[in-house]
Design a protein around this nucleic acid. Structure first.
Length: 586
RNA sequence: CGGGAUGUGGCGCAGUUUGGUUAGCGCGCAGCGUUCGGGACGCUGAGGCCCCGGGUUCAAAUCCCGGCAUCCCGACCA
């Protein structure tokens, strides 16, 4: 593609609304343009990248035995009412009405449609298993779209759905997808981890999230440096061997409960400092609502409560941490001075580390007062013991007790064992050998394709611009010609044209900067646009019979002899000399 | 859902406080000339419903009211 005819305008100025590098660079490089909040147009360069990711996904899905379909984006709301997800999604779903005022939504995902589709066609164990996938635009009316493509309202997603006769079959389908995902993200050049994810309201089902490691990610995940344990912080646990569980009782803690005056000190840090104690010596009591009543969650003062863990601990009841409104509605509850023995609490949940036989400093259930030497059993009770603390770096791994590490990631994919929820709700049953009916056992598997593009830029860029991995780059080679105005100008152009033809003849996709622009502009754009290999031909090089080669990512440079290496050799040799895609994608 | 801001040629902004001729600047765009290996320079030029709708006024980008859009912050560890 000649740049003189490419639909492209690069920007020298950063767009004001870009908070993260991927957003900034994709806009500056002319890959995307915002049309509305969280809605983007994909211009030629961006579109090519998107298609390449899509193609990789398609190849791996097909290789794993999944079959491509195209499901509707506009879906009848009635289907979502049947599964109960209409209410579950609420305002997060884009909604519309047709002229007859029938409700529709723009698909955020497609379990309902695919389940009814399979139910309509298949009804025998002989038909299963089957795995259907699509690559299609999805919609979520995010409260707050941000970070460009990372949290958009319209995004391209691959979603696959497997249907099996039983849980064993589901396990096989799941593993095939899990392995395919590893291949996809590896081919895309991402540094990623697969981690155990939050199962959500369904409960007990296996699922993994694929996290591209990135500081701008919106998810924290935990991984072990010694074994293969890895989990979203929402579900991460630590070993019961934690030293805090076996704290020695200081002699003084046999002392009776003592009330101390702690004026204007509603926080852990202030109380600890005031009393000369460590935060870990305090017992933190967090108020939560459990089906309209008051519950207390107990963790050591230096830890935070994991809300998801709390929710799991009280299942099937629903738990939610108190908000300012809740406190306002219960003025007797002394926020900041709550102790574990508060009379109004119907349920006390505690992390095992609270079991340590020691005296605690905690709230006195009276404003401006705390108490010390408070002991479990003697001074307060616990109704439910459950892992409650949010994992932090250094906590012991639940598998091997090795040190855990916490990192941020961008969730680029998720695989989920759904079970029979949708099959039952939407009537996807099959008949077995004996004529008995059973619900199909489902799995669902998503990849955020447009989000992968952003995640790749987050990982592969520098101060000059994007450095696309070869497998995703819009073009394999960026050819820059610098004809100058000297006597050789025409010959430089002619030679570059010939080189352009030769490269394309060798099967390479070439972006040819044939514009009448100054060298600085061309070099700056080449670095911004980020093709993996840059070739520069100028009058000086032509005089010496060479073309310069630069590897975008590493900055490595060398020279290729025009006659021997480039213009007169065969396609295979030319590809090798240029070192483009096949030397990179592996 | 609360709080804060911003809307002015394609992009980035000034002008608004204190209303007053033809609304400016940088980048980009077009033409001519110079330049030609890391975002060159000169001259000339095109391009603006100043977000939308009301209102005040002799006069509104500017003041008032109401919308819309966009961006940021907060969602909570007691």
């Amino acid at each position: 593609m000649r740049m003189t005819s490419l639909f492209l305008r690069t920007l020298r100025d950063d767009p004001t609304d870009a908070e993260v590098e991927s957003h900034r660079l994709l806009v500056r490089a002319g890959c995307i343009r915002k049309v509305a909040s969280g809605v983007y147009s994909w211009l030629p360069l961006g579109s090519r990248v998107l298609r390449r990711v899509e193609q990789i996904v398609r190849e791996e899905m097909d290789a794993a035995g999944a079959q491509e379909v195209i499901l509707p984006i506009a879906q009848p709301l009635e289907l979502w009412e049947r599964s109960g997800r209409d209410a579950a999604y609420g305002p997060l779903m884009f909604r519309l009405q047709d002229r007859k005022e029938t409700g529709f939504c723009l698909s955020p995902t497609a379990e309902e449609v695919v389940t009814t589709t399979v139910a309509a066609e298949y009804s025998s164990y002989r038909d299963l298993p089957v795995n259907l996938y699509q690559v299609n635009w999805k919609y979520r009316d995010e409260l707050r779209p941000r970070f460009g493509l990372l949290r958009a309202r319209e995004f391209l997603m691959k979603d696959a759905y497997s249907f099996d006769v039983d849980v064993e079959g589901l396990g096989v389908s799941y593993q095939e997808m899990y392995d395919a995902y590893h291949r996809v993200f590896t081919r895309c050049g991402l540094t990623f981890r697969s981690v155990e994810g939050e199962a959500g309201e369904i409960g007990g089902d296996v699922n993994h999230e694929f996290m591209a490691v990135a500081a701008v990610g919106e998810d924290d995940f935990v991984w072990c440096k010694q074994c293969d344990y890895a989990a979203n912080v929402e579900v991460a646990r630590r070993s019961a061997e934690h030293p805090a569980h076996h704290a020695v009782v200081p002699a003084a803690d046999a002392a009776p409960v003592e009330k101390v005056h702690t004026p204007q000190l509603p926080g852990i840090a202030g109380v600890a400092e005031h009393l000369g104690a460590a935060a870990s010596e305090l017992l933190k009591c967090i108020a939560f609502d459990v089906d309209g009543e008051l519950g207390l969650a107990l963790v050591p003062g230096d830890r935070e409560v994991n809300e998801f863990a709390l929710a799991r601990a009280v299942t099937p009841r629903k738990a939610r941490l108190y908000t300012d409104d809740d406190f306002a509605a219960r003025p007797a509850l002394p926020k900041g001075y709550i102790g574990p023995g508060y009379e109004g609490a119907v349920l006390v949940v505690a992390d095992p580390s609270v079991r340590a036989p020691r005296g605690w400093i905690t709230g006195a259930n009276e404003v401006d007062h705390h108490v010390r030497h408070v002991r479990l059993d003697r001074d307060f009770r616990v109704d439910v013991w459950a892992d409650l603390v949010t994992i932090v770096s250094g906590d012991p791994c639940p598998n091997c007790s090795g040190p855990l590490s916490v990192d941020r990631g961008i969730e680029v994919g998720q695989v989920f064992q759904l079970g029979t929820k949708y099959a039952r709700a939407l009537g996807a049953f099959y008949t077995d050998e004996r004529g008995d009916q059973h619900p199909m056992v489902m799995g669902c598997y998503g990849i955020g394709i447009s989000r992968v593009v952003a995640a790749v830029v987050e990982e592969h860029h520098d101060e000059h611009g994007i450095a696309w991995p070869a497998a995703l780059a819009p073009f394999d080679v960026h050819l820059v010609v610098l004809p100058g105005k000297g006597d050789a100008a025409d010959e430089v152009r002619r030679t570059a044209d010939a080189l352009y033809d030769a490269l394309r003849g060798a099967g390479l996709e070439v972006l040819y900067d044939d514009r009448d622009a100054s060298p600085g502009v061309k070099f700056a754009d080449a670095d911004l646009l980020g093709m993996p290999v840059q070739l520069t031909l100028g009058a000086k090089g032509l005089a010496r019979g060479i073309v310069e080669r630069k590897v975008r990512a590493s900055g490595e440079r060398n020279e290729l002899a025009l006659t021997d290496d480039v213009l007169t050799v065969g396609p295979g040799e030319l590809r090798a000399a240029v070192g483009a895609r096949d030397a990179w994608s592996g």
